[in-house]
Nucleic acid binder design. Structure first.
Length: 483
RNA sequence: GGCGCGGUGGCAGAGUGGUCAUGCAAACGACUGCAACUCGUUGGACGCCGGUUCGAUUCCGACCCGCGCCUCCA
């Protein structure tokens, strides 16, 4: 199993601290707004990583934090005239909803900054004791980066280069412009905790150093996050943790690629972002997942309606392989494919092991999901080819397809939900399944009378509304397209 | 300005020193009342210029272009 390490910029064999066990910490959300597609990408990427490592037999402890106190949260709460607690609670719930919709498994631990204040203060105290932190005249406690010679090793920056940069703000309270805040005194009325440096709140970076150590230990296997966290956030985490603990912080750094719109990164500051919930009104969650998984996790992806439509078409092809097989797979068309493995008998014809091996080879190579998907399409084609003639073999392969797709979080929902667009609020244009069934019955009568003109008229009418009919020996089924 | 990543067929997107990615789209054929689904077949690609090599899209160098980070952002 090879992983790309953003610290070394190289792929290397995964070596865990303890055999068979992996501790993984991923930087999660600052909860002052709804999650957008950039968050979705990180959520899905590390969900796939966790799922796959587990299918390989690793005992993964997945920790993803929640930042529930910071400047933006306080500002937003004030704007809304609500308390910080009320605001964060609301958006944590929203985040959990989005996560569930996307089929993202919950992390094992979800530490919140406000619940780890004691650990955070303890860690800052260690840094003060070790003389790598100091309190400025304004009361802010800063980490002094000149005391940590390795500063910049993750982002490949040299201190003098950073100093030469034009965008580093100058602050008279800091010994160096690059020193960053560990503890911030509260303004009157702001949420605050008592500390040796006065009442205040933690800086952003320190919470991750404190919580990761508490949850996973001073050194752990994998640390992940979004692309814009590499600098300064993760660089600062390294500085704090290694300066305080005197040992290596993280073995393996992983960073997801950006989500773009029109070739420009989706970001809060540019305002060019789409929230997960707004996209899920128009597209099934698995389509969004497919869109994310169809590119390698480190590559940039471009979000557009066209790219989601293409994802829909591709995923539909995969689901089409199951047509006419549901019943014998042990699931009804209305239930979830994810259950079929438990229900179906195991004494089916053996499936060519090549698919499984090639899928694993792709995933073992730094989670090459596009290459893994290609194997799924090969399998789908094989199913379609033998479906009519070798039914038992087709059923066995269909089960294999579901199993292989499981770590990707695909083909887990009901085919009906995907193909018929069930649950999409933006597709509820009065065409309920009952109404559509009415059309189908009318057309069936026309076809029985060989009234092809009427039959085609009904089909065209539905097509103009995005409903595609599909006649087979067993009857007529329908799917929704262009959603 | 500094550091980093990337430029693959109409589009998306893997990959490799010399036979296939894969998906969408397109064309033809089969199936179908006609379609849809599906199957079969087809075309078409490696930014540009040099170098290494028997041979480079793949390795090296220059150049052009795009993007990211350097400021809160996943």
């Amino acid at each position: 199993m090879k992983l790309y390490n953003s610290l070394t910029h190289k792929k290397a064999e995964l070596q865990t601290l303890q055999p068979g066990k992996i501790g993984m910490y991923v930087c999660g959300m600052t909860v002052y707004d709804y999650c957008h597609l950039g968050h979705a990408r990180v959520l899905v990427a590390f969900d796939v990583i966790t799922r796959y490592l587990r299918t390989k037999g690793y005992d993964v402890t997945y920790v993803r934090n929640i930042t529930d106190v910071d400047d933006k949260i306080i500002l937003r709460a004030n704007e809304n005239g609500e308390t910080v607690d009320a605001l964060t609670e609301r958006f944590i719930n929203a985040m959990h909803e989005d996560e569930r919709e996307l089929g993202v498994l919950r992390p094992d631990k979800e530490p919140r900054a406000t619940r780890y204040i004691e650990s955070i203060i303890g860690l800052i105290q260690v840094l003060m004791d070790r003389n790598v932190a100091y309190q400025g005249a304004n009361g802010d406690v800063y980490f002094e980066i000149s005391k940590f010679p390795e500063y910049g090793k993750l982002s490949k920056r040299k201190l003098d280069e950073l100093n030469a940069g034009e965008r580093v703000s100058v602050d008279e309270n800091k010994r160096s412009p690059l020193d960053f805040v560990l503890w911030k005194p509260a303004k009157p009325g702001e949420v605050a905790w008592e500390s040796p440096w006065g009442a205040g709140r933690p800086g952003w970076h320190i919470e991750c150093s404190a919580m990761s150590a508490d949850c996973l230990g001073k050194t752990f296997d994998i640390h992940g996050g979004g692309p814009d966290l590499l600098f300064p956030h993760h660089e600062n985490e390294i500085a704090q943790s290694e300066a305080a603990h005197g040992c290596e912080f993280v073995r393996q750094w992983m960073h997801a690629g950006p989500v773009r719109v029109d070739s420009v990164k989706m970001s809060k500051s540019l305002g060019n972002f789409f929230t997960i919930r707004e996209v899920l009104k128009k597209h099934p969650a698995e389509v969004v997942r497919y869109f994310i998984v169809a590119s390698h996790y480190r590559s940039p992806i471009d979000y557009s309606e066209d790219s989601l439509k293409e994802a829909t078409a591709s995923l539909t092809r995969l689901y089409n392989a199951f047509r006419d097989l549901y019943e014998d797979m042990g699931v009804s068309e209305a239930s979830s494919l994810a259950d079929c493995a438990q229900l179906a008998p195991s004494d089916l014809a053996p499936v060519d092991a090549g698919y499984r091996l090639r899928f694993a080879a792709a995933m073992d190579d730094d989670f090459n999901t596009p290459a893994a998907l290609a194997v799924l399409f090969e399998l789908a084609k094989a199913i379609n080819t033998v479906k009519k003639t070798e039914r038992q073999a087709a059923i066995a392969m269909a089960r294999e397809l579901v199993e292989l797709a499981r770590p990707l979080g695909l083909l887990q929902f009901s085919p009906e939900r995907l193909l018929q667009g069930v649950g999409l609020s933006d597709s509820s244009d009065g065409l309920t399944p009952e109404v559509i069934e009415g059309y189908i019955q009318a057309r069936k009568a026309a076809r029985a009378a060989k009234n092809w003109a009427e039959s085609d008229r009904i089909r065209d009418e539905l097509l103009s509304k995005g409903i595609v009919l599909n006649d087979s020996r067993e009857g007529t089924t329908w799917t929704r397209q262009d959603n």
